[in-house]
Design a protein around this nucleic acid. Sequence first.
DNA 1: CGCCTCGTTGAAAGGAGTCAACTACAGTGG
DNA 2: CCACTGTAGTTGACTCCTTTCAACGAGGCG
Lengths: 228, 228
Amino acid sequence: MDVRKVTDEFLKTAFDVECGSRASRQLGEIARLLTPCRGTSAAIERDREQIVFVASGATKLVASASDNREQVVAFHFGGDIISIPADGMHAYTLFALADSTLLIFPASEFKACALSHPAVLRAMLERTQTALYRCRDKAVDLGRKNAKERLAGFLVAMSERIGRTANGKCRIELPMSRRDIGDSLGLTIETISRQFSELKQAGLIVTEGRSGVTVQDPAKLLTMAGHI
Amino acid sequence: MDVRKVTDEFLKTAFDVECGSRASRQLGEIARLLTPCRGTSAAIERDREQIVFVASGATKLVASASDNREQVVAFHFGGDIISIPADGMHAYTLFALADSTLLIFPASEFKACALSHPAVLRAMLERTQTALYRCRDKAVDLGRKNAKERLAGFLVAMSERIGRTANGKCRIELPMSRRDIGDSLGLTIETISRQFSELKQAGLIVTEGRSGVTVQDPAKLLTMAGHI
DNA sequence: CGCCTCGTTGAAAGGAGTCAACTACAGTGG
DNA sequence: CCACTGTAGTTGACTCCTTTCAACGAGGCG
């Protein structure tokens, strides 16, 4: 697994740029390949902005408020691109939820390089906007929804991103723990657990082991999420 | 006040592109000028993504969750650029907090046009990333902070964006109501009021009328915000 | 100057947090 | 293959912060 090969894959997947191109050569030179194991944090420089391509695996981007309260700001899966700022009012750390392959670029060099590849720049803009829209929706959830709505919304989002739908039901294999879910939804692990229990009792979901969830009635779950 | 003139100003302010250029002509053709009055919503199409330049004034971007709970997702001031998605799980509306001048572009046409102006594309990426980082910090606040920390953080952010610092103190003229602040911080108007009172009693701020706030001790307020 | 909206303050209610005990996985080694 | 162990998850009782409901006070515009 070398940098060049993953960079080619990155450009193809994310920007539909052909392999072996000039862009690939240029970006390959500034890229760094990381393969963090499940549960470990990716060693990312904190003093400057970074751009990360998730070639495979699953990650959580965590912000640490003071007093070691942690907030999961976003989950990312294979094919996703993550922008991580230099340390500001909160420090951000990227953790692998499963063994992952990551391609890391210093943002300033990436953008300088992309300047001569407008298609790359445009796709990056598109993806950053998507991330922004997702983050805004998350802000709405955190600001205006109760525990039940938040968990329902979370399960809906996960079923769309990593679920497998078959005859009206959706099977999700959650790569994150209850704690991660709590840290993402601004709730405690106990509240998450209680809400899971209530959704089970209501017959909306079935759980298998720690990570398996089957959504029995996606439409009803969507209603519970309190979206429009 | 015509579209062309504001477009020129937009390109100069936001992207440092010279006036009367080809970019200006192209963008001027797809732009629409709006001048919403204080308290009114800007008429923005909901069925497709939009990009808005705030030439002057102040706005709030509001998401409506079901059950008419509202969440202010971001405040924007003169010089800012706002990306607004087509309706998804939440509907977004842009309100003028003061009489404002806005330049509206359909996002797809804007991006198509920008494709031949990499500098514009890059600056848009930069600004979208900034918006994303701000939104993430907001998510941390909403998910992990109590009322006092949220209001302190809000006042710190506002003093940085629209405050006037003089001999260690910072004067802010807030264009938004207590309700807007509450809707932004995921709190009720009463809680905002109580927290304002406590900050006043602690001698950290002085208020004048409904909108004037002077931060007496910015460093201490920053500490209260619970940032790192 | 008066009206009306916005903001402030108080008392009571509720939802999530905290603390604590218990249970069930999943991975390890025998 | 099974027993063991440690971590992850569940459930209950109680507390606390924010909301809710209500009344009052103040600012700003006509």
